[in-house]
Design a protein around this nucleic acid. Structure first.
Length: 448
RNA sequence: GGCGCAUUCGUCUAGAGGCCUAGGACACGGCCCUCUCAAGGCCGGUACACGGGUUCGAAUCCCGUAUGCGCUGCCA
């Protein structure tokens, strides 16, 4: 039978990273087995504002490149995929239960009468678990519909999984204890339950379930903080699953190759933002310049950086790519390359250009570079070192003032590359301006 | 309280009876490299929750205790 998995979030206004990982594991399993991955929105609770909230789910999933085969926006043979539009289906299934005498009314609500037996859950991740459902005191009959006609999760979830022919229910471990109830419903409806795989929860630093108030609990946070989607996706895979060969960075096709539900851990995992951050840095380091450009572009636009052409932008991106850790920082790293009106950091200026000797050295370096026959990294470097030697100082004595002069900061991309792409005229002009600024600021005879 | 699940470095994990004086990664500390900052390289410390079994032998199997998490809703 063809595999069909689903991700069934309720629209809470954001895509939770735990939900994202659940979606990811469902997606991985379906893709690996050549099956279908379905998106169903569980919006039975009318209090949740849906339009925007559903949008947040779409955006998060799309960003992570988890594409679905059937869903509210795509349609499919067993839709609609919004629970709020499936009233007719639920009525039909309720009628079935009524005919078979599995439900009864209690103070306006409809309850499902438990068969009161031991239910065995054969979970792909957790193994065989027996639940003793015989005691009504500890396992009361579940409500499936409220007096106002709205439906309870357990019922609609089971009905939909059944109707949508879901073969594997892969969800958070918080549902493990609900599973015997669901199995009772399947049986009452005369259906064979799907396979279940309950995956461990993602916890915050306090070891509690990751919640909305925890920083970094929503996919949107990572989008805005400049993470590469492939990095977050990779990190999420490593929470509760591992390739078992000590690799940390895995391409999607490698994960697809190795991923098995059976090898998922049972232990809850704490989300470690540090490691996720590190992985992101590794991804940025190793990605192509094109990809780096693609992912940086939205941030550059937002920062209002103007550049004449992509051809002008790429060399700038190339020299900062090894430095950038968050894509959202790219503008900060390259901005000085696209304006003559770059700011000077007070402390850097003071450290590098306060001394008259430093200004003098900058002037000497400018003179030396003025007639350099070839303007490229190796010859610039050679000339700078030659100049330093002639002055009897270490290269750093020229490098630091020069960096501050041309970037305004004491930290930046490699100096020689920066010189090269800035071009000789701009470099020399910046030297002059910086020297002037420093002299005004640190006027030795000045009163101040 | 009841039921369920879990328990290896601070964190993510490898480990399915001898290969474990427990491996990797992040973080942390030190050194090297170096034009800054990173990156990279090398080195270092820190873990099998506890107590009983079973076995020639246990991180690995069994039982108990403790702790954590989840469920126990007319939330999903």
């Amino acid at each position: 039978m063809a595999v069909r998995t689903r991700f069934a979030p309720s629209p809470t206004g954001y895509l939770h990273v735990g939900g994202a990982r659940t979606a990811l594991f469902n997606w991985l399993f379906a893709r690996k087995r050549g099956g279908k991955f379905i998106l169903r929105i569980e919006d039975t609770d009318e209090k949740r504002n849906t339009a925007q909230a559903i949008q947040a789910i779409y955006e998060g999933l799309k960003w992570l490149e988890l594409d679905w085969d059937e869903g509210p926006d795509k349609g499919g043979a067993v839709g609609p995929y919004l629970q709020s539009q499936r009233e007719e289906v639920y009525q039909r299934y309720l009628a079935q239960l009524e005919i078979k005498g599995h439900v009864y009314t209690d103070e306006g609500s409809i309850r499902f009468r438990s068969p009161r037996k031991t239910v065995v859950v054969n979970d792909i991740v957790c193994g065989r678990i027996e639940f003793d459902m015989t005691n009504p005191g500890t396992h009361p009959d579940m409500t499936i519909r409220r007096p106002d006609g709205s439906w309870i999760f357990h019922f609609v979830n089971v009905v939909d999984d059944l109707e949508m022919q879901i073969t594997h229910v892969i969800r958070g471990e918080d549902h493990l204890s609900n599973t015997p109830k669901h199995i009772e419903l399947y049986h009452a409806l005369g259906a064979k339950p799907p396979a279940f795989a309950h995956i461990p929860l993602i916890l915050n630093h306090e070891g509690k379930k990751l919640s909305k108030r925890d920083g970094g609990s929503s996919v949107a946070y990572f989008m805005e903080a400049g993470y590469a989607p492939e990095a977050l996706r990779n990190y999420l895979c490593l929470l509760g699953w591992s390739p078992k060969d000590n690799r940390e960075m895995l391409a999607l096709n490698e994960i697809l190759e190795l991923f098995e539900l059976e090898s998922i851990n049972r232990r809850n995992a704490i989300f470690d933002l540090d490691k996720c951050f590190w992985l992101n840095g590794q991804y940025i380091l190793q990605m192509s310049l094109d990809r780096f450009c693609e992912l940086s572009l939205p941030f550059l636009e937002r920062a209002g950086i103007t550049y004449s052409s992509r051809e002008a932008l790429l060399p700038a991106l190339a020299i900062v790519k090894p430095k950038v850790k968050h894509l959202s920082d790219t503008p900060e790293w390259i901005s000085f390359l696209f304006t003559e009106d770059y700011p000077f950091e007070e402390s850097s200026l003071e450290k590098a250009l306060r001394k008259p000797a430093a200004i003098e050295r900058l002037r000497t370096l400018g003179e030396a570079l003025k007639n350099l026959p070839e303007w490229n990294h190796p010859s610039i470097e050679a000339k700078l070192k030659e100049t330093a030697a002639a002055l009897g100082v270490k290269a750093g004595e020229l490098v630091h003032p020069a960096r501050v002069a041309i970037t305004g900061k004491s930290v930046g991309p490699g100096l020689y590359e920066t010189f090269e792409i800035l071009g000789r005229e701009r470099v020399l002009e910046r030297f002059r301006r910086a020297a002037e600024l420093a002299m005004q600021k640190f006027e030795p005879t000045g009163s101040a």
